[in-house]
């Protein structure tokens, strides 16, 4: 079997974890009642939805990195991974902020988990973006 790129697999795993985050650490479940009487989900519900899509993108990019042969192509995709990591971090903070009260479910579990996973994604992307080092292997002729 061809050797897969370990960094790509790790990225894909983190992507899947981001998709699973709102499942394992759910956001607030209640509905808000608007002044016109309509019941709508809380803001953090949309944060979770957005992050699941971003997680999916990260997972797909990771798989592409894992299977691609060209080092240059992998490097390009790792730039994208780093960028997606930044988006993962910024989403619950600024892009679609979670609910206001710090004791709500979305702020207790989901948000910190997403920020950590985003940071890991960013780290993986940056690590994969660097210029490749010389191969060092443990087989000298004895």
């Amino acid at each position: 079997m061809k050797k897969l790129n370990a960094l790509g697999i790790a990225t894909a795993v983190v992507g899947v974890l981001i998709i699973l985050t709102p499942v394992i650490l759910p956001v607030c479940e209640g509905l808000l009642e608007l002044t016109n009487g309509k019941q709508v989900p809380m803001r953090c519900f949309w944060t979770a939805r957005a992050e699941m899509i971003i997680g999916g993108l990260i997972a797909i990019t990771g798989l592409m990195i894992a299977f691609l042969k060209s080092a240059e192509a992998r490097r390009r995709l790792n730039h994208q991974v780093a960028l997606l990591g930044v988006v993962t971090i910024l989403t619950p903070l600024f892009i679609i902020p979670t609910c206001t009260h710090p004791d709500m479910a979305c702020n207790l579990g989901t948000k910190p988990a997403l920020i950590i996973l985003g940071a890991v994604t960013l780290g993986l992307g940056l690590y994969g973006s660097r210029t490749p080092e010389p191969e060092i292997s443990d087989h000298t002729i004895s």
Binding site: P102, D103, L108, G109, P112, A113, I115, I116
Partner: peptide, 13 residues
């Protein structure tokens, strides 16, 4: 440390 700081409220509750 990162986990503890991030999830201390969750653990507590």
């Amino acid at each position: 440390g990162v986990i503890l700081m991030s999830f201390s409220r969750l653990i507590q509750l």
